[in-house]
Design a protein around this nucleic acid. Sequence first.
DNA 1: TCCATTATCTGACTCTAGTCAGAAATTTAC
DNA 2: GTAAATTTCTGACTAGAGTCAGATAATGGA
Lengths: 295, 295
Amino acid sequence: MDDVENIRAFNRTVTRRLGVLNEKYLGRDRPLVESRLMFEIGVNGASVRELRARLGLDSGFSSRLLRALERKKLVSTRPAGSDGRVRIAHLTRSGLAELKRLEALSDDLARSMLAPLSPGQAQRLVGAMAEVERLLRASSIEFAPVDPRSGDAERCLRQYYAELAARFPRGFELRAEDAPVAGELAPPAGCMIVARLFGEPVGCGAIRTLAPGLGEIKRMWVSPRVRGLGVGRRLLETLEHVVCEPELRAVRLDTNASLTEALGLYRTSGYREIPRYNDNPYAQHWFEKTLVGKP
Amino acid sequence: MDDVENIRAFNRTVTRRLGVLNEKYLGRDRPLVESRLMFEIGVNGASVRELRARLGLDSGFSSRLLRALERKKLVSTRPAGSDGRVRIAHLTRSGLAELKRLEALSDDLARSMLAPLSPGQAQRLVGAMAEVERLLRASSIEFAPVDPRSGDAERCLRQYYAELAARFPRGFELRAEDAPVAGELAPPAGCMIVARLFGEPVGCGAIRTLAPGLGEIKRMWVSPRVRGLGVGRRLLETLEHVVCEPELRAVRLDTNASLTEALGLYRTSGYREIPRYNDNPYAQHWFEKTLVGKP
DNA sequence: TCCATTATCTGACTCTAGTCAGAAATTTAC
DNA sequence: GTAAATTTCTGACTAGAGTCAGATAATGGA
């Protein structure tokens, strides 16, 4: 397979070149992970658990790195107001200055890749890099079932409700009877799936059993950061084939007319519009898809 | 600058994804450098100095890695026939089997990047990766002046003469009076430049002083492995602006009609054809370019 | 209230990936 | 023939990047 050959060549060349450059620019006077950690903390700060998830670090290791940066007066941590266990790391004044310096180095690195090329080559390189970056991000997204009450599920749902409130013409307020009922969305009769990019939740979706053999898709949400990468479609396919008890022969869902990407996704994924089947006051379209058998 | 922003995003996403995958696939049961070293040795073997140059390793470190692979019976080394100092590393029978296994893992890695994508996305990813790989290779090529008698210069010239012999209709044999005269191609009156890709010589060119203020380009060669990346043009520009004593106002060169890429390069680089100016029996075209001032 | 879970931290340890100094064997230049 | 350079090797040392086993404190649910 020639594609595989191409990817191997890409892997080797890029690993070598980026390895050398990262060392040279970003790891010059400080360990590379410390630089990466400072990039992740950024100007707005981040909780330790976010940092751990994004960089894929061991909890002990990340804690020690933060202590090292604190000793250098580049970072300060304080407890999060909402949850006394969580700590938020912020860059100090000199940490922000250091981040600026790192960003300048990172820009130098980028320019050093373009400098030897002709203008035409440089333009093609940037274009191809943007495409690779986008598609590699898409290919790095992973789907996993979660407990609907877990932290990652909660984080997704908060963003989901916030988005509904922002996009529905008359806003959105979660009715008590619609609040996630843990049992419904958990096995065996249902399931909640979270999509993660480098450890961070970027989308979710759930399925529950409406009647024997009939499922309903709920709470489909994809973070704006990864829209247009086909995450919604993969999420939908994953949910349709999640094992529910009893096995599903058809799936339904409802949605609001203002969620245009979702409408398009359902229509091109084999869903056909059906009459109202529930009393959801926010729903304006109802869909159903017949499942022909599991893969 | 938006281009720089794109490259930084590329750098971060790719480093993370490839780092994780390389660890997972190729570094599973052996240090990553050992795997890389085995890839570089390949089925044909390679000298220790080649391996060091290609991977950018310290000589002590590479020697120790080879000893480790020898202890595991994966590699054997023996002196090169030509030069008693140089040693050639080969994969043993079980080393070759291990290389096959590594290549299979590397293929798995490649496929794991494509698997989550739709066929269209996969095709676009492979295309963009090939483009990035090609251009990143171009941008990784470095030019450095060398002693014309040094090993790297010799290696290039051997390949250069071999190529002339293969491409000239009636072959090529180096005349004694044309053999590299060290002084001519070395400062202050001349210079030899070698192009290197990841430490390995992939091209060369030289300039000497024909008469006060008049230079001559000699021994322009670009390895077939990097043709079409603009190496020849950059080499030529580098040579034109190398500081010679006395400073050059014009540069000449001769070439054979069978070297079509070279003819095209000279014509599009500001050289105009002039009458025969020397008695080189292999030359069929003579060119000159007026230099308008150094950058 | 109790108990399981989650988030963070500490200390002890390991392994990878090097660097550096110098020795030995060859080759090349003068 | 001798000196300088090249290639490889050995031994000693170091820094970076983690892993692992708990300890501590806060939270959420029964």
